[in-house]
Each structure stands twice: as structure tokens, then as C-alpha cells.
């Protein structure tokens, strides 16, 4: 058998791939990585296809023992990283020999980091995807949505690559900064009125501790939400305003339908950045047209395939 033994699993480590597409009409959440940017780079550095199964590690504190020779890459939150006690760099790929231990400490900036192995982790798909969705009880090692646990076995094939590679510095986000998220105004925006919309873009919002993979919950000067009669399907990045007036941006583990009024949709790439913001961090919004957001997203897809 070749793969990795889990010696410390961290508070919430989840196997993810491109997400569970095609089942939203039955209420199945798409899931997938909360930060598609860091996940895409981790796979890309190893020559893996986009969406190859990798491990999303929230907050760090993971110890893995390799049982084969392979290459790995870790991208995302800034956490201490070492191989048999020797420091290794994030946002780069490096070789691992059988018997070596890979240690990830607690994240200092950002929330989640992505561990990819050359060729990807091997596990059975549920409804076409290995993406772990705990609320739905789907995906992951047991197929029932469980997070990684001590003693788990992460199977992968042995592999070798020609040499090191790293993400260019300009593509590595600084998670300590307060981001400006681009938002496509739409949905029920007209019913909120021009004044509220202007206020929304002017004020500084704060990420709250209630945020999770389902949605980022923000706090600020509350909005007055108009009523909305019928639930509709919801898309990635939908900015919902529940009756308390504090926005929720729907992320990877979003539900498939929603009834709260919408102010618009956050650019998917900025949703990924938002998923790295820790509780109490601040952020602002700026408007972007659907067409501009699409052009930007297409460039991302062209690069990562």
C-alpha cells in the first residue's frame, strides 16, 4: 500500500475536489474547496489536473507520515511547515521519501491551506465527487461526509517529478490585508434602494466568528431588507440579507435554494479570498459588471485548465 498515515488530523481537514456538480436539483450542496485559488495552485504546481482530490486543512495542526516516495505542494494560509523537522516553503513543491513526516503548524495568517500530492489522493466518489460535505453527509474517506481523523489512511500512488517549482510571488495573496471584494450588483438590489446600496459600498464590514464553509457572515451598519416571496436557486457568492440586516456571502458549502433577498453576487475569485479571512478581519466591497467578472474568471480557467 502506498499513501499517508494521519498522525494528527487538525480541527477540520476535508478532502475536496472540483465539487459535486449536477445534483443541486435534489438539494445536494456542491461543496469543493473554500479557496479555489490556493487549491488550484497546489494541484498546478504538481502538474495535476484542476480538481484533482486534495486535502483542505483549516487552521493547520496536521501531522502525516509518508509511506511512499512522492511530491507534495501546500498553498494557502501561512503556517509553519516542516519535513522531518526541516523547514519547507509554502506555495512550492518538494519531494518526500517514504517514512518522512510532514508537519503543518497552526495558521498565522489566513484560514485554510491545501495539501496536494502528485497524482492526487485516491478515494471513492459519491455522486461523482469526493468533496466532503459534512452537513449533507456526503464525500470524504468514508463517503459519509466525515472530516479527517487520526489513524486515517490517505492513499496515493508513488510518483517522481523532475525538480522544484513555485508559485510566482505576485499570485500569493497577503491574507493579513483587508481585501476589497468585487461584487456584481443584482437580485433584489433595486428594492434595497440607491441610498442603501451606496452605504453598503462605503462602509467597512467585519467578518464574524459565525462564518464557515457554508457562508461568510459579516457585521456592520445593518441593511433594511425588502421582503421576497418565493425561494429561488442560489449561486456561488450570493450576498443574502436576512431580517437582521447583516449580510451572508454564500460559499462552497452553500445550500441550493434560498429565500432571503439578495444584493448581488461576490466575484467567485473574491469569495475564495473571503474564505481566507479570519474572524474580526475587515473588508470592503466595490462594484464590478458581470461581463468584467466573467472575463477575469475566464482568464483564471484558461490558466488552470
Amino acid at each position: 500500500m502506498s499513501g499517508w498515515r494521519v498522525l494528527r488530523a487538525g480541527p477540520l481537514s476535508l478532502l475536496q475536489d472540483a465539487g459535486r456538480l449536477g445534483w443541486q436539483h435534489l438539494g445536494v450542496s456542491p461543496a469543493g474547496p473554500a479557496d479555489g485559488h490556493a487549491a488550484a495552485w497546489a494541484n498546478h504546481l504538481l502538474g495535476n489536473r484542476a480538481g484533482t482530490p486534495l486535502l483542505e486543512i483549516a487552521l493547520g495542526d496536521v501531522l502525516l507520515e509518508a509511506h511512499c516516495a512522492t511530491w507534495v505542494a501546500l498553498c494557502g494560509a501561512d503556517a509553519p511547515l516542516s519535513l522531518d523537522g526541516q523547514p519547507r516553503a509554502l506555495w512550492s513543491r518538494f519531494a518526500v521519501a517514504a517514512g518522512q513526516r510532514l508537519q503543518i503548524g497552526f495558521a498565522r495568517r489566513g484560514q485554510r491551506l491545501y495539501l496536494a500530492v502528485a497524482g492526487g489522493f485516491e478515494l471513492d466518489a459519491v455522486l461523482g465527487s469526493v468533496a466532503t460535505q459534512r452537513r449533507d453527509g456526503l464525500g470524504g474517506l468514508d463517503g459519509r461526509g466525515s472530516a479527517l481523523a487520526v489513524g486515517d489512511w490517505l492513499a496515493c500512488a508513488p510518483s517522481s517529478l523532475p525538480g522544484p517549482a513555485a508559485t510566482p510571488a505576485r499570485f500569493i495573496p497577503d491574507y493579513a490585508q483587508s481585501p476589497v471584494l468585487r461584487m456584481m450588483v443584482g437580485g433584489d438590489a433595486q428594492a434595497f434602494g440607491r441610498e442603501q446600496l451606496a452605504g453598503f459600498f462605503q462602509q467597512t464590514w467585519r467578518v464574524t466568528a459565525q462564518s464557515d464553509r457554508m457562508g461568510a457572515r459579516l457585521a456592520g451598519e445593518p441593511l433594511r431588507a425588502p421582503a421576497r416571496p418565493w425561494s429561488e436557486g442560489v449561486a456561488f457568492g450570493a450576498l443574502q440579507v436576512p431580517p437582521d440586516g447583516q449580510p451572508i456571502v454564500l460559499l462552497a458549502d452553500r445550500q441550493t435554494m434560498g429565500g432571503y433577498p439578495l444584493l448581488g453576487w461576490v466575484h467567485p475569485r473574491d469569495c475564495w479570498r473571503l474564505a481566507q479571512s479570519t474572524a474580526h478581519q475587515t473588508l470592503r466591497f466595490t462594484p464590478i459588471s458581470v461581463e468584467s467578472a466573467q472575463a477575469d474568471l475566464r482568464a483564471f480557467y484558461r490558466f488552470f485548465g
Binding site: 456538480l21 418565493w230 425561494s231 475566464r298
Partner: peptide, 22 residues
């Protein structure tokens, strides 16, 4: 299309931006 989600009064179509736009 990647997902077709019917609701009470609407249909939400999730599409593959690499193949088509709205």
C-alpha cells in the same frame, strides 16, 4: 450546463463559463 435547479416560480441554470455566457 452544470446544474438545473427548479424552484417555485423560477429555474436557475448554472452554466460552464468556459463554454457559454449568459
Amino acid at each position: 450546463l452544470t446544474d438545473v435547479v427548479p424552484a417555485w416560480t423560477s429555474l436557475l441554470l448554472h452554466y460552464d463559463l468556459r463554454r457559454i455566457d449568459h
